[in-house]
Amino acid sequence: MTRYAMLIHTTRCVGCFACRVACQTQNSLPASDSFIRYEEQESGSYPVVYAEQVPLQCQHCEDAPCVSVCPTGASYINNEGIVLVNQERCIGCKYCMTACPYNARIQDHRTGEVEKCRFCVWHDDGSVPEPACVDTCVTGARIFGDLDDPTSEVSQAIVSHNAKPIAAGLTRAKIYYVR
């Protein structure tokens, strides 16, 4: 089986927004809509200060609350573990948006449908997905790959960096963070 996952090194993230804009163009999103959002925190006090940027997007949870609340079955998990929205079924009720604890879903007001990070998966040509955010990340803060393949870069990096989901006990998320 293939189970796609991502690792994000926040210790490498300079908060440059390249992933956001790359994702927007890749997915032809309007300029105001983004699949990736950021939280920022500074800690300490002058002159000993530490600042951290954390990019957030769909965590592709194995127990995705968005999928379980979706009344039409539009939200689903594909056989590669990627949470997707079948837009032909989406009524835009936004229940999934409220259910996502990561606030990772957006409504495309051109169609009224709900959208989200798809790991840039192409279903039609069978090729390996190549997420634009990973591809464009200037500092190499993102790694993408197959969690079920212990030799994949992402599997190994998760082990070697002891990467963890962004929040413990929230969902079984498949984006792992190095903090």
Binding site: G73, A74, E88, R89, I91, G92, C93, T111, G112
Partner: peptide
């Protein structure tokens, strides 16, 4: 429900999950 409002037939999917 913007998308359903634009495509009313989709409301038939409401009884699937």
């Amino acid at each position: 429900a913007e998308a359903g409002f634009k495509n009313p037939l989709r409301f038939f999917y409401l009884l699937t999950n």
